[in-house]
Design a binder for these strands. Structure first.
Lengths: 218, 218
DNA sequence: GTAATAGTGTCTGTGAGACACTATGGT
DNA sequence: ACCATAGTGTCTCACAGACACTATTAC
């Protein structure tokens, strides 16, 4: 067998921190780069993991405590020079989770950093996050993906705000609602969200319906 | 180090065979599945390959003779059960090449099969090709990708025909030309293609300009 | 009532699609 | 002259965007 190729998974976990897109990082417990903040990741365990996706779920859950409602393969970074230990393959995934669920599940040492203000990161983790942000933005423009950054239930205003944060641009309320309506991926709930003013209709992602795609950018 | 994870690359090479989308296959020279048709692929050589992409280029060129003008990472298939030899990672790539260049470069044992009529393939190569076709179709609808299935130079009618073959639908000539025009990724050449009737303007992909994207489906 | 947010109605300009038209070569 | 393909012009309908409007609650 060909020797010594390291096979790992790394996960970019996104959430909204005070309305800003943020990623979860952990301090590394061992060399290389011990003590530095980095993406949660780890070796694939051939005996334990049925697939790389299963490995990503395992690593994310065991290292951070989080069970993300959305997780998808991002890209595979594989080269001789990205890891001081040797030729390394990292199958990367990105995951989305609502802030509330994250706070409830995350271990104490899990750190959130806004993507707009990231520290320098070891390995090529900076590039990985960049790729994740690009993918999230791109896919959000054509799909219902941002729903997964909210809680189980949410209002249309909250959803619009989330799209605006991710895409970095204001959207027209009327246009936004028309498009969301057309996709038919939300289920109207019986309750409303009550605040200081007129209560807002609550929605959740329609069970039974997968991730819908727009035919044009939102 | 964790033992015995196989790390390979596989390449889905697309071309047009009499106007139909086709993939290139090779008879395997060793077990498992010796003698069966399969995607060109091979182990990553840690000593030789600087990156997985470099490995894909090396494998494709050394096994088939082809130097593809376009090659991009597709997806990474990684699980315990996809290869009888054990836990296996395949970083897959898809590549595009014009029929003319393919005929000039390909080794004799390289076989083209139309994607509409594929034989059963070993491993999960059927799934890999499926993913490649889906990606090609999707990306073609939003980009200049189909250019790479033609030769160095081509007419707008040829390009439109190629889009129609990949997307599986007729396109309006006038609309098609408007959109191609807007992208500004073609360079008008001095020559024309002469046939039975009115000669057609020849174009090539503009050097210096990368792969342009439409903002809507073509 | 007033303020503030939720949610809807309507007008308009743009542009995709449809299709007819002109252009230019071979025979 | 005629045919086949290359290439262009134009009309229209749909719809995205803009924005004003109404609705409903807390206070």
């Amino acid at each position: 067998m060909h020797p010594s190729i390291i096979t790992t998974v790394d996960v970019v976990l996104f959430t909204l921190l005070e309305g800003n897109l943020a990623v979860g990082l952990l301090r590394r417990s061992s060399a290389p780069f011990e003590g530095e903040l980095a993406l949660p990741g780890g070796y694939i365990h051939a005996q334990e993991d049925a697939s790389a996706q299963a490995a990503a779920y395992r690593v994310l859950h065991s290292k951070t405590g989080i069970e993300a409602p959305y997780l998808e393969q991002l890209y595979t970074f594989a080269s001789a020079d990205r890891d001081p230990r040797g030729w390394a393959v990292s199958i990367t995934y990105y995951a989305l989770v609502g802030a509330e669920q994250l706070m409830a599940q995350a271990h104490d040492d899990f750190v959130l950093k806004p993507v707009a203000d990231l520290p320098a990161l070891p390995f090529d983790h900076g590039k990985i996050i960049e790729a994740g942000v690009a993918r999230l933005q791109n896919k959000s423009a054509y799909s219902a993906l941002p729903c997964f950054l909210l809680g189980e239930t949410f209002t249309l205003s909250e959803l619009q705000e989330t799209y605006e944060r991710i895409l970095g641009q204001k959207l027209d309320k009327s246009v936004f609602r028309r498009k969301i309506d057309e996709l038919e991926f939300l289920e109207e709930l019986a309750e409303k969200r009550r605040g200081q003013h007129r209560p807002a209709q609550l929605y959740r992602i329609h069970p039974e319906r997968g991730l819908r795609l727009f035919d044009k950018a939102i």
